[in-house]
Design a protein around this nucleic acid. Structure first.
Ligand SMILES: O=c1ccn([C@H]2C[C@H](O)[C@@H](COP(=O)(O)OP(=O)(O)OP(=O)(O)O)O2)c(=O)[nH]1
Ligand SMILES: [Mg+2]
Length: 560
DNA sequence: GCAATATGGAC
DNA sequence: GTCCAT
DNA sequence: TTGC
């Protein structure tokens, strides 16, 4: 069955860095002698004597939390001094430089000039605001100072002001990407994990790795990890600025999937994910094409959505009964793009009834998928997963003493409902570990929990099938997999997903010269060894993250 | 022209 | 090798 | 569909 991907709510990441940008060396300074124009009549001078007014949206109406930097361009010395004194007199802080605590930046520039200023400035740890500052035009500060009663930025020329902020944010985002195209940090250490006798706990040690240290010299220019979805830590924009766009692109991806167009699906869905997490509203398709992996075609589609609220290409797909049927058929477990295409285009089928009427042309698994179509489609409440886990654990420990099992997948990521149950098994004895599933499966059948097999080879280390708690419960999809303890870190990382997270980690690994599978992390043929070199000791997920130079991400934050 | 995760079972 | 799955 |  083709699982429908998460709706526009997911966050995403681009795994391919943008082009390398030249770094400007210009530095910002409050004493910059660059103010080009003569002081015009300081419009702010007349702003005197007003009581407090808020400068930041949602502030408490005082200036206490306002820490402002005034860009010293197109602002005369006199006007600048007056503004700064005024803010200070009302209790706000005035910064001579942009600092980590600056939260308001005021500039008497148009957007392109401000973008240029951002570009010309070398941003580093000491001058990059920790929280996204608000950008405002000079008028904003002047008017805020002038007001008797408090005004919020949203009351003030809402449209142009928000537009200004959005454009600047995009420029800053791109600046950030450019600045972070840098050399990978090859740590020169690697992790060794030791299993502790009589326990399934393991200990990680970091040891010096002479090989890695040698490699440090040869480290090539690699993408920076913060641009990978698996390190993004960015959730969907809570304000839902671009919901309309991201939802429709995600639906378009569903249509491409229905047609079996894997790569259009992939790019479109990633675009939808990344747009969903932008912290500001897209204003045009052209603006969107500044994001990596959003090119001309997607830009035009986004523009159409912004203009008309809908996308003709998507509407056409949705109105096409062939496409609707393709999607329907692929939602049967065991039916993929090729089979659906055959049924629709060669046999003219359109409904589940059509499929049911030709049951003889189904594979064994498809027949099961069709019979339990609705059971399999419905999501499993977390509580039911826990009940199934308890039964599996009970049976498994009885038949394989000392076995350890972990329910992974969306359950481990903390989802309240799950599409299926994904269970990993291991055991301190490798021989027992790899045979765990094949020993447990017959016992689960005997216990009445397993009802249908979707894998027939029952000697393997992997099982797929249906299970149910009892005659009043729905049939649920369940996957069981066995791994050696030495593979368990990689196995947990794989089986816990999400799919997008998994692909992101593996793409990152490949960029670093590794290949990551559910069993192992291997260094791809290093000249010296002439063949692939498995990294030993990856008993835990932490060890795998560390070996890859990634910050550990708990399962709950992998739900991207 | 090619890669975009990596792997395994069924046929 | 293709299809389908995770 | 995008980017190299
Ligand atoms: O194409 C895929 C699909 C899945 N996986 C991994 C990640 C995923 O988390 C795990 C289990 O897959 P499943 O399909 O069960 O996804 P899930 O994350 O558990 O979500 P659901 O609630 O739909 O089961 O297998 C992949 O690597 N590639
Ligand atoms: Mg699952």
């Amino acid at each position: 069955m083709a699982k429908r991907r998460a709706k526009g709510a997911a966050s995403g990441g681009s795994e391919r860095g943008g082009k390398r940008g030249k770094r400007s060396t210009a530095t910002t300074s409050s004493t910059a002698s660059t103010a080009p124009s003569a002081p015009s009549a300081a419009s702010a001078a007349s702003a005197a004597s007003a009581p407090s007014a808020p400068l930041v949206a949602g502030s408490d109406g005082t200036w206490a939390d306002v820490r402002v930097y005034v860009v010293p361009l197109r602002i005369g010395a006199v006007q600048g001094r007056v503004l700064r004194n005024r803010v200070a007199a009302l209790g706000g802080a005035v910064h001579d430089f942009v600092s980590p605590t600056t939260n308001v930046i005021v500039a008497n520039l148009d957007v392109s000039e401000l973008i240029e200023w951002l570009r010309q400035t070398t941003w580093n740890e000491s001058n990059t605001p920790q929280e996204e500052p608000r950008f405002h035009k000079l008028d904003y500060l002047v008017d805020s100072l002038k007001q008797q009663s408090p005004i919020s930025p949203h009351d003030f020329r809402l449209h142009s002001d928000e537009e200004y902020v959005a454009q600047v944010k995009m420029a800053k985002y791109q600046q950030y990407r450019r600045e972070h195209q840098r050399r990978a940090d090859v740590s020169g250490t690697r992790t060794v994990a030791l299993s502790v006798a009589g326990s399934d706990k393991m200990v990680s040690l970091e040891v010096s790795d002479e090989l890695a240290k040698k490699r440090r010299k040869k480290a090539r220019v690699l993408a920076s990890r913060e641009f990978f979805a698996c390190q993004g830590a960015k959730a969907t924009d809570p304000k839902g600025n671009n919901m309309l766009v991201s939802r429709q692109l995600n639906e378009l991806a569903d249509m491409y999937k229905a047609e079996g167009d894997q790569w259009r699906e992939y790019t479109t869905r990633n675009a939808a994910r990344r747009i969903a997490k932008l912290p500001f509203a897209l204003k045009s398709g052209a603006e969107a094409t500044k994001l990596p992996k959003i090119g001309k075609k997607l830009g035009a589609k986004i523009q159409e959505i912004l203009d008309t609220g809908s996308l003709r290409k998507l509407e056409n797909f949705k109105a096409d009964d062939k496409v609707v049927a393709l999607e329907l058929f692929q939602s049967i477990w065991g039916v993929g793009a090729a089979t659906a295409r055959k049924w629709v285009h060669q046999r003219g089928w359109r409904t589940l009834r059509d499929v049911r009427d030709h049951a003889d042309s189904l594979t064994t698994n498809q027949a099961i998928g069709l019979k339990y179509y609705h059971d399999i489609k419905s999501r499993i409440p977390r509580s039911e997963v826990m009940a199934i886990e308890a039964r599996v654990r009970e049976v498994a420990t009885a038949v394989v003493p000392g076995v350890a099992l972990t329910v992974c997948g969306s359950y481990r990521r903390g989802r309240l409902t799950c599409g299926d149950i994904d269970v990993l098994f291991t055991h301190p004895d490798d021989k027992v570990a790899v045979s765990a599933v094949s020993r447990v499966v017959p016992a689960l059948h005997d216990a009445g929990l397993l009802t249908h097999d979707l894998t027939s080879d029952n000697r393997g280390d992997s099982y797929m099938g249906l299970c149910r708690l009892g005659p009043d419960s729905l049939h649920r999809r369940i996957d069981l997999k066995s791994f050696k303890q030495s593979e368990y870190g990689c196995a947990l990382l794989y089986f816990s997903g999400s799919e997008h997270f998994c692909r992101s980690v593996r793409t990152w690994a490949r960029r670093q010269g590794y290949s990551l599978s559910e069993r192992a992390l291997v260094r791809r043929f290093s000249r010296d060894t002439k063949s692939d070199l498995p990294i030993p000791g990856l008993f835990t997920e932490e060890a795998v993250f560390q070996a890859l130079g990634l910050k550990y991400v708990p399962p709950e934050e992998r739900d991207i």
